[in-house]
Design a protein around this nucleic acid. Structure first.
Lengths: 226, 226
DNA sequence: ACACAAACGGAAGAGGTCGACCGTTTAGCG
DNA sequence: CGCTAAACGGTCGACCTCTTCCGTTTGTGT
């Protein structure tokens, strides 16, 4: 049994503050998370880890002591916002009008994507070592699917709408946001407006087959290099 | 006057074969372009240059002799396909039915994006040192704008449709294609179907402000690092 | 066939990021 | 107040990619 495991880093499930830590460690951890969120929101998750550390006013080693790998930092940084996202969707489920609820939920999620490039990327990225992120995201997906079903049942949403179309929207929205930050807010709003208009039931013009998109399968494609 | 300029590399405007070259140079150039297209189509333009050289069966130096920078290789690789794209759009302009022409053009371009990740990226990337790419792309944009105007004039396209919405579609489509290659074809088709349905004129439900998206402004945002 | 220049390939340099090591500082407790 | 272990920060090595250098090979005109 290697010694390194005995002094386990404070990387508790990526959200909980870990009780038995020293005060400065807790403080630095919080500042790192904040710095990560700030940097990611602006520039996306491609920001180098050293920049996060500098922004937080700590050394690189401190960063890696709290978050042994890059991905764990990203996952921890967005764990909270993922919770907010789930909450927003669950809130929309309480709406008496299923269609209004769905529209509200999609608007909120798209807005979160637009306001925070990092969140958008995190939402659509696979984190093999962050089970809680996957869980929260799956919960969001499930609630959205419930919203979809209810809106279909009341006839406010076209029958050939598929739950995967929400993933489609999130991916499309992310694509729109990727470049040109100046225009991305307006672009996102407009894309969503287009999308929502097509969601209403119509008798003619059926849609092609839905795409088998699942959040957990994204970024899973084997990146070949040779 | 530096000596390097006297023996100018064969990088003629990124498309023409350059007449005065040795046969093996011409051959290698063609193989490099083909290898680049193949690799980019599959994995996008992030493939390292060394992989292109290996795939073409030449050394790295040979690659850089033909294409002094990475971007010039990418630009040269997609110059031809950009021409095809412009041709497809111009062809659609000849359609008697403006709406059908627009639909055909958008379908073709989206399909080209889906079939070739590299093309998609190249279309949406800024190439400061490849004026011919910018020119061709501007031409495509102009023709699409003409298609839009004609379809609006005949009342087949909603009046508040904006030319920038085509860029919006291309960005969204690119986002959908970025991950999960297995599902990307179906996803792209479905996204386009949703989009086209919203393009028909409606009396109610106006759209929000169009986004000031221009192809030449993409990837121009100053990437701050510190 | 020959000679010369064009073209080639392998290896090395430059730049940048991830992640680890190690001597030093500091919080927390008796 | 002083001790100990936890936590810290600067630095260093490994890896990867873009690009250049230089000795060698090969096409081509005579």
């Amino acid at each position: 049994m290697p010694d390194r495991l005995s002094r386990k880093p404070s990387t508790s499930p990526a959200g909980t503050p870990a009780p038995g830590q020293r005060a400065d460690a807790r403080n630095n951890r919080a500042r790192l998370l904040q710095a990560a969120r700030d940097a990611y929101a602006l520039d996306g998750t491609d920001v180098p880890a050293s920049a996060i550390a500098r922004r937080a006013g700590v050394g690189a080693a401190t960063l890696y002591r709290h978050f042994p790998t890059r991905d764990l930092l990203i996952a921890a940084a967005f764990s909270e916002q993922l919770g907010q996202c789930v909450a927003a969707v669950d809130e929309a489920l309480k709406d008496d009008d299923p269609w209004r609820g769905l529209r509200t939920a999609l608007t909120k999620v798209c807005r979160m994507q637009a306001e925070d490039r990092g969140f958008s990327a995190a939402f659509l990225t696979e984190f093999p070592d962050a089970p809680d992120v996957r869980r929260e995201r799956a919960r969001a997906e499930a609630s959205l699917a419930r919203l979809v079903q209810r809106a279909k049942d009341t006839g406010q949403l076209r029958k050939d709408f598929d739950s995967s179309d929400i993933t489609l929207l999130l991916l499309a929205n992310n694509g729109v946001l990727q470049d040109c930050p100046a225009a991305s807010m307006a672009a996102s709003r407009r894309l969503l407006a287009y999308f929502l208009q097509s969601c209403r039931p119509t008798d003619d013009t059926p849609l092609p087959e839905p795409a088998p998109l699942r959040l957990d399968d994204l970024y899973r494609a084997p990146r070949r290099t040779g």
